[in-house]
């Protein structure tokens, strides 16, 4: 087994989420839906408890009435270095690539859903039905992204198609990849810049700086998953930094 330190790669992609900036507007959810050809979460699907949202805004209420506050935490695949979903897949449909990402190979997946049980963040989604789109939406499907058939798992890919495209373009043009060249759909859509995407191997990138912030925390530390998505805690106006809901 190759450990994270031994992997030779120039990039280690990651995301930083400033929970303090998140307004819960759900723009990222919609952007992701459009970018990644995510099946429609209709009312019917909602009632079946099988909605898809590669990124979702979890909303928690804090305090006693009337001083109630809503807090929002965007949760997407945490791209754990030590992912519980990876070793359990019998067919290597999910594995860790050399750029710090947890990737899903749709063609290999047979749909045992074991990874879904293994994921503590519940960010893996199973295609219970063959996804369909109304004719009016057919033309908006992104040609860069595979449409997943029924019976397989899918999850946030850090918009890998964008990473690949920008990498190709920079190689073609013979220039260095700069921080900010690659934007995922959600970071691009976020009106408050709560979501930031970048390369941890680049010390000057925004995510690297945010990762060294005092407010930084990761979810479910005790499980030792070592996520590549870090969170910056909410700053409570009444004093003290309140983390997520943990």
């Amino acid at each position: 087994m190759v450990t994270a330190a031994e992997r030779v790669s120039s990039h280690k992609w990651g995301m930083a989420v400033d929970v303090d900036r998140c307004t819960g507007c759900q723009a990222c959810v919609m952007a992701c839906q459009a970018e990644n050809n995510i099946p429609l979460s209709t009312e019917d699907i909602y009632r079946q408890k099988r909605t898809f949202a590669w990124i979702r805004i979890e909303r928690y209420w804090y305090g006693e009435f009337p001083n109630v506050k809503a807090r929002f935490i965007p949760i997407m695949c945490q791209h754990c270095e030590n992912a519980p979903c990876e070793p359990v897949c019998p067919v290597f449909a999910t594995y860790h690539n050399t750029e710090g990402m947890n990737v899903q190979v749709y063609n290999r997946c047979v749909g045992t859903r074991y990874c879904g049980n293994g994921c503590p963040y519940n960010v893996r989604f199973f295609n219970y039905w063959e996804p369909t789109w109304p004719t009016s939406l057919r033309n908006q499907l992104n040609p860069d992204v595979t449409i997943r058939s029924r019976g397989i798992m899918e999850k946030c890919s850090f918009c890998v198609q964008r990473i690949r495209r920008v990498s190709r373009e920079t190689t073609r043009d013979g220039r260095e990849l700069q921080d900010g060249d690659i934007e995922t759909a959600c970071t691009e859509a976020c009106p408050t810049n709560a979501l930031v995407f970048g390369d941890y191997n680049d010390d000057k990138s925004r995510v690297s700086i945010m990762r060294n912030d005092d407010r930084k925390y990761t979810h479910l530390d005790a499980l030792n998953t070592d996520p590549n998505v870090v969170y910056l805690a909410q700053v409570d106006a009444t004093g003290g930094a309140a983390g997520g809901h943990e």
Partner: peptide
């Protein structure tokens, strides 16, 4: 119970077929 039962041979047989990889020995499944 598998999502794509027609592909379970990739899972239950230790043979790499055309995919170039064996089943994942680390998986309890």
């Amino acid at each position: 119970h598998a999502g794509r039962p027609w592909r379970i041979f990739y899972w239950i047989t230790p043979f790499d077929f055309a995919r170039g990889i064996f089943p994942n020995a680390r998986s309890p499944l």
